[in-house]
Measured scan of single mutants.
Amino acid sequence: STHNELEKNRRAHLRLCLERLKVLIPLGPDCTRHTTLGLLNKAKAHIKKLE
């Protein structure tokens, strides 16, 4: 159905954006896999440090 396709595309776009963010944020050497929340929290902390 159309709704399923739209949802699939939305999730794919979100995944792509999170992958791009992961490249930009210093995550530390001990981190190989992150939850979305963990990645967003690290991004928030990094932005605050830059301010």
Rank of each mutant, 00 (worst) to 15 (best):
I25L: 09
I47S: 02
K8I: 04
K22D: 01
I47Y: 09
E5C: 00
A43K: 00
E19C: 03
K22N: 03
E5R: 07
R10Y: 09
G38Q: 10
G28L: 09
C17K: 07
A43N: 03
H34W: 12
D30C: 10
K22E: 00
I47F: 14
T2Y: 10
T2G: 02
K48H: 01
L16E: 13
L18Q: 00
H3Y: 10
L24T: 04
V23Y: 10
T36P: 10
E19Y: 01
H46K: 14
K42Y: 02
L50G: 06
H34V: 12
L16H: 03
L16D: 11
L6F: 08
R33H: 07
V23Q: 13
T2R: 02
L40Y: 03
C31V: 13
N9D: 09
C31T: 11
I47W: 12
H13D: 03
L14G: 07
K49W: 11
N41H: 12
I47K: 01
L40E: 01
K22V: 00
N41L: 01
S1P: 05
G38R: 11
K48S: 02
K48V: 01
L16A: 11
K42H: 01
R33Y: 10
L37P: 02
T35K: 14
L27E: 05
H13P: 12
K48W: 06
R33K: 10
H3M: 13
V23N: 15
L6W: 03
A12S: 12
L24R: 12
K8T: 05
T32K: 07
K48E: 01
L39T: 04
K8H: 08
L6Q: 14
K49T: 02
R20T: 05
L50R: 04
H46Y: 10
H46D: 00
L21F: 05
T35E: 04
R20S: 03
V23W: 12
A45I: 12
K49C: 02
E51G: 15
R33C: 05
H13T: 06
T32E: 06
A45Q: 13
K49G: 04
K44N: 01
L39E: 03
N4C: 06
L37T: 12
L39W: 13
H46N: 05
R15T: 05
A12V: 05
T2D: 08
H3G: 14
E51K: 15
K49A: 05
V23M: 12
K48T: 01
K22H: 02
L18F: 11
C17F: 12
T32F: 15
L40D: 00
A45P: 02
E19H: 08
L27Y: 05
C17A: 08
L40R: 02
A43C: 09
